[in-house]
Write a protein that binds this DNA or RNA. Structure first.
Lengths: 138, 138
DNA sequence: GAGACCATGCAACAGAAGTGCATTTAATGG
DNA sequence: CCATTAAATGCACTTCTGTTGCATGGTCTC
């Protein structure tokens, strides 16, 4: 049993060949990936399988879904300190308008916001758009 | 020339009948509206016209587009203090998971975030999800 | 090995976003 | 006031993402 297989198994996800490939692909990237990204990476991939795999991963806390404002759902592996299951302490995401990549800034948490009377916060999403470090270096 | 016509004219948008209707519709709502909302409100409305009208409004700074995480673009009239053209001082949005409405919290600004080295912020989007005041009252 | 359960593949649909082109409407100049 | 021009609208159509239903295949358990 490999490292990846153990990870999936720990999260009660049966480590099939396809799932291991998807997991490894996401682990190899340091950016959030869209379903289409994975589809393009593997010729033999079936959209539906990828779709359901990502859903399963999300339900089991292996990845978290990211809405970066492009209206295309992206996904990233949960890191230690990701805390995406807990409603507090959510990290923010950065979307580069130059290379169109989205990254998790796991260290950077969303500050607490005081809401008007009657409003109850349950979740928060903060996306900063701009130029990422790779793009600003060139 | 009515108040609405003057407003559009000031922003260099020709005040056609359709545009005035759309503007008034949005002004009558205190929530952000999706293209489909407007389409349903006016039987005679053409999707394309609405689509392009909203784009024009956005370009001319009459409305701002809101991405509330539902993957459906919403729009709201810019208010005094909206400042959506300036990159600083952006207000946040609240999406109610109960009534599915999205509102601008114009008074509530997005706090400044320190980004890692090399990252340049140009825009920011903060959406709080939860229960709005109307829904929490019931 | 049989049965059950889960994963995968295939087909199809829904909804939103976006584009091209023809036609109507409104503004402008003579 | 009419003709010209430019902008706005309407219609048809395409693309892309997300989603579901159903049949098939693989895997695990008893």
């Amino acid at each position: 049993m490999t490292e990846v297989e153990r990870t999936l198994d720990n999260k009660s996800v049966r480590p099939t060949a396809m799932r291991i490939l998807i997991y490894k692909f996401m682990a190899s990237k340091n950016t959030a990936v869209a379903l289409t990204d994975i589809e393009n990476a593997f010729e033999k991939a079936e959209r539906t399988t990828l779709y359901r795999t990502l859903k399963t991963f999300e339900e089991k806390g292996i990845v978290h879904q990211i809405d970066d404002g492009t209206n295309i759902s992206k996904f990233a592996l949960c890191q230690p300190g990701c805390n995406c299951e807990i409603d507090q302490d959510l990290h923010l995401h950065f979307h580069c308008s130059h290379c169109d990549k989205t990254v998790c800034l796991t260290e950077h948490k969303i500050p607490h916001i005081n809401l008007p009377h009657g409003y109850i916060a349950e979740d928060a999403n903060l996306v900063i758009k701009g130029v990422c470090d790779s793009c600003s270096a060139h």
